[in-house]
Every structure is written in structure tokens, then in C-alpha cells.
């Protein structure tokens, strides 16, 4: 087992990134923002069935982590997870179609908002059960280690999941076996309405020390470069065979826990909310790009217009797509079709 010298805290590293990568970061953050804003509207209009959790406000934390991974690397998500496949490079059309339940959805309409997965970009799936996908990402790291293919795996989970036992089973196993896995806690400070600090003992990132693995707390999760640097460091450690890292990123969700949720109580302090809304990760990074001379305002406006057009196309693709045939409900349970002895009674024919 590799014992890190000490846990480290990071607010902003200084990894040199080329212009293309920096603009790709902004593009992916904008994709998440506009995709989720459109999804939010579609929920309110009744165009998306079921429940939807947006990543609006958390785009830097998502994209900073995803872009630190390589194309062949794996990740698992959670209930607030549209941003993860988008951050890893998934096309928007099949994601939007999945939210609506169309047959062209990335999961053929079987998963929906809570179960997006795009194996083509290493997205091994979201979990609607809090914390439940952490062992899955750990297992992907095990296969990378056994097969020696150099891949890395990352588990996204929230501050709520940070109190699930499976995280600690996974950290212990990954530490014991030096697995190339990153446990990334998206601490948006509220488990639905419960303030994380009222149900969380100590600092999440510091829990890494108990397992002899590296731990890092990104205090400003609205800064995409800070998240990128912390994750990139962890990815490089993992790829060198130095084992897992726990990263805690402090961030904030701008919308309600889920779209359309109306709570009688205002569990978030108005001043706190206002202060975080001031720290919009997309606005902040845009200011950085302009100030550093990476891009002009006009270029960034054009980039945003392209992203809006992409989202429009994704919605048009969704609208033009058919719903799946009812028989699809009986497919994909096993590798080979298995006879189900229910069809006649289901159709009221018996």
C-alpha cells in the first residue's frame, strides 16, 4: 500500500492547458447548463415524465473532473447526473431522448433521467440509489488493474452518499489493492433539505487519512481549473499505480433538489444562496478566459450560440423520435431473450 505523505488541500493549481482544452471546458459547461435549463422547462410543460435533478450551478465540478479523465477511463454517477456523460463528451440527442423516454434514447428509453449511461464514453451508469454506484466504479478499477490496461475509474457521489457504508468498504478495498479509482464527493452542502454539516461528522476529505489513501478538498468547486487540477493529480497518481484518492469538491446547486419540487420550508438561507449564485462557474470561467486573453467576448458568445443550437438539435431529434415499441419492455433483461410467462394475462386475454 502506498501511504501518501499527508493529505493535501488545493484551491487552484497551475497546470498548463492549451487554448483548445480551455474552450472545450467552457463548451461542456455550457452544454450542461443549456441542456439542464431546457430539461427543466420541459418538465414544467409536462414534456418529460418522472423526476429530474439538474446539475445547474455545479458545472465546474462536473467538467473539471470529467476532463481530467482520458477517453478510455470509466466513471459512475448518481441521481444528479445529466452532466456527467455530457462532461465526458456524450452527444446530447440520445441523452435528451432518454429523458423523454424515446426509443432513440441512450438507454432505449429503459433508464430515464435517473439511469443515464453511455458506455461509449466510459459512463457506466447513474444510480438512483444514493452511494450504490461507488462499488461499481471500484470494480471497474479492479478490472483495469487485473487486465493492466492503464485505465482509471472515477465515482461521482454527493455529500449525502458520503455517509453510506459502501463508500468506506470501497475506500478500504481500493486502498488495500491500490486500485486506480478516484472517489469524488460533489459536496453541494445539502442532502435534499438536510444541511450536510448537521449530519456529517468532521470533514469528508479528511476521512481518507483513516484509510491511508490520499485526500484532497477543493474549497472552490466553482473554479473549473481547481477541480481539474485536483482530479488530474489523482488520475496521474492512479495511473502510476499509487492507488485511490478521495476528492471533496465544495459546490452549490442553483435549482431545487429536483425540478418541480415545492417545499413549504426554505431550508437554504437567502444570503447564502445569493452569495453562491454570484459565483456562477460559467460566468467566472468566461471572465478568466477573457482576462487571460484566451478568447474574446465575441468568440465566447459564438461558442454559446453553437451550444444553444446543439441543444435545439437534441430536442428536435427527440421530438422526431418514436416512443419504443411496448415489446421493448421485455428485452435486455438477459443476454438471450428469455420467455416470460405473462403476456396473455398482461393484455387481459386470459
Amino acid at each position: 500500500m502506498n501511504m501518501p505523505d499527508k493529505n493535501f488541500y488545493s484551491n487552484r493549481g497551475e497546470m498548463a492547458l492549451d487554448r483548445e482544452t480551455l474552450l472545450q471546458m467552457q463548451r461542456r459547461m455550457l452544454r450542461i447548463r443549456h441542456f439542464d435549463e431546457r430539461a427543466s422547462k420541459m418538465v414544467k410543460r409536462g414534456q418529460i415524465p418522472g423526476t429530474v435533478h439538474t446539475s445547474i450551478g455545479q458545472e465546474a465540478q462536473v467538467v473539471g473532473a470529467c476532463m481530467a479523465l482520458g477517453d478510455g477511463d470509466y466513471m459512475s454517477g448518481n441521481h444528479r447526473s445529466h452532466g456527467h456523460p455530457i462532461g465526458k463528451g456524450s452527444p446530447l440527442g440520445p441523452l435528451m431522448a432518454e429523458l423523454v423516454g424515446k426509443g432513440t434514447g441512450v438507454c432505449g428509453g429503459k433508464g430515464g433521467s435517473l439511469h443515464l449511461a453511455d458506455f461509449a464514453v466510459g459512463s457506466l451508469g447513474e444510480s438512483g440509489i444514493v452511494g450504490s454506484s461507488i462499488p461499481i466504479a471500484t470494480g471497474a478499477a479492479l478490472s483495469a488493474k487485473v487486465l493492466g490496461n492503464g485505465r482509471v475509474s472515477l465515482a461521482f457521489f454527493g455529500d449525502g452518499a458520503a455517509n453510506q457504508g459502501c463508500l468506506y468498504e470501497a475506500m478500504n478495498l481500493a486502498g488495500s489493492w491500490d486500485l486506480p479509482v478516484i472517489f469524488l464527493c460533489e459536496n453541494n452542502q445539502y442532502a435534499l433539505s438536510t444541511p450536510a454539516h448537521t449530519v456529517t461528522s468532521g470533514v469528508i476529505a479528511e476521512r481518507a487519512a483513516g484509510f491511508g489513501i490520499a485526500g484532497v478538498r477543493v474549497e472552490d468547486g466553482q473554479d473549473v481549473l481547481a477541480v481539474y487540477d485536483a482530479t488530474r493529480t489523482a488520475v496521474e497518481r492512479a495511473r502510476r499505480g499509487e492507488g485511490p484518492t478521495l476528492i471533496e469538491v465544495v459546490t452549490y446547486r442553483f435549482h431545487e433538489h429536483s425540478e418541480g419540487l415545492r417545499l413549504g420550508t426554505d431550508y437554504r438561507d437567502a444570503a447564502e444562496k445569493e452569495a453562491w449564485l454570484e459565483r456562477d462557474p460559467i460566468v467566472l470561467f468566461r471572465q478568466h478566459l477573457v482576462a487571460d486573453g484566451v478568447a474574446t467576448d465575441a468568440e465566447l458568445d459564438a461558442l454559446e450560440a453553437e451550444v444553444i443550437a446543439e441543444v435545439d438539435e437534441a430536442v428536435a431529434f427527440t421530438d422526431a423520435s418514436p416512443f419504443p415499441d411496448p415489446s421493448v419492455a421485455f428485452a435486455d433483461l438477459y443476454t438471450e431473450p428469455t420467455p416470460l410467462r405473462v403476456a396473455a394475462t398482461l393484455r387481459g386475454a386470459s
Binding site: 461507488i134 462499488p135 470494480g139 483495469a144 470501497a170 478495498l173 488495500s176
Partner: peptide
């Protein structure tokens, strides 16, 4: 591989490993 006595992660990690080539 001997595992720790941690059935939840043993089962989940085996699933994740199976989904990625083992």
C-alpha cells in the same frame, strides 16, 4: 484475491469488473 469482510463492495466491485472486461 482475498477480500476484506465487506460483502457490499465485494458484490458491487465484482459487478463493475464484469461490466468492464473481467
Amino acid at each position: 484475491r482475498n477480500t476484506p469482510i465487506s460483502e457490499e463492495v465485494i458484490v458491487g466491485a465484482a459487478a463493475g469488473a464484469a461490466m468492464t472486461g473481467l
